[in-house]
């Protein structure tokens, strides 16, 4: 029979105050991080590929030189975190839309693991970066290193 049941009793917002509303914050995050990433990525591309002699200038010395400055360290850490979480969250919504049950759990786990590992590795690299490693080819080192041949 196709009788219409009484309308749902006033909806109790289950997510309110108790749990974080992942959908809402996720949605907001995507927009906010998206805008920031546009600035960060285009800034990054502009500095690396456009200023100076362009793409030819990019070598170990160039990167090491940038990462010696806390400004660029923060810039790149931000870019790393925002982009990976942005991408990871995007993958999460796609998986939620199209996968169900066990495959969904597995894929979400893989995405989470990939994002986490990349963030940890990337962050470690950036924070613990030594621009003047001992024993390196002096021609590759930035000019401010004592061993530099530049």
């Amino acid at each position: 029979m196709t009788t219409i049941d009484a309308p749902r009793t006033p909806h109790t917002p289950v997510t309110k105050n108790r749990r974080v509303n992942w959908e809402k914050w996720g949605w907001l995050y995507m927009r906010a991080s998206g805008i920031l990433l546009v600035v960060l990525i285009f800034g990054h591309l502009f500095v690396n590929l456009f200023l100076g002699t362009g793409v030819k200038q990019v070598d170990f010395a160039f990167v090491a030189g940038k990462w010696a400055s806390p400004f660029w360290q923060v810039w790149d850490v931000l870019m790393l975190w925002l982009a990976l979480i942005h991408g990871g969250n995007g993958m999460r919504t796609i998986i939620n839309d199209y996968a169900h049950g066990r495959p969904r759990q597995v894929m979400l786990g893989l995405v989470f693991a990939a994002v986490a590992i990349l963030i940890v590795l990337g962050t470690l690299t950036l924070v613990a970066f030594d621009p003047c490693p001992t024993g390196a080819d002096p021609s590759l080192l930035p000019s401010f290193c004592p061993a530099s041949s530049k």
Binding site: M1, T2, T3, I4, D5, A6, P7
Partner: peptide, 11 residues
């Protein structure tokens, strides 16, 4: 009718 929960037999 939805508000009042009227019992419809549709079709």
């Amino acid at each position: 009718c939805v508000r009042l929960g009227v019992n419809f037999f549709n079709e």
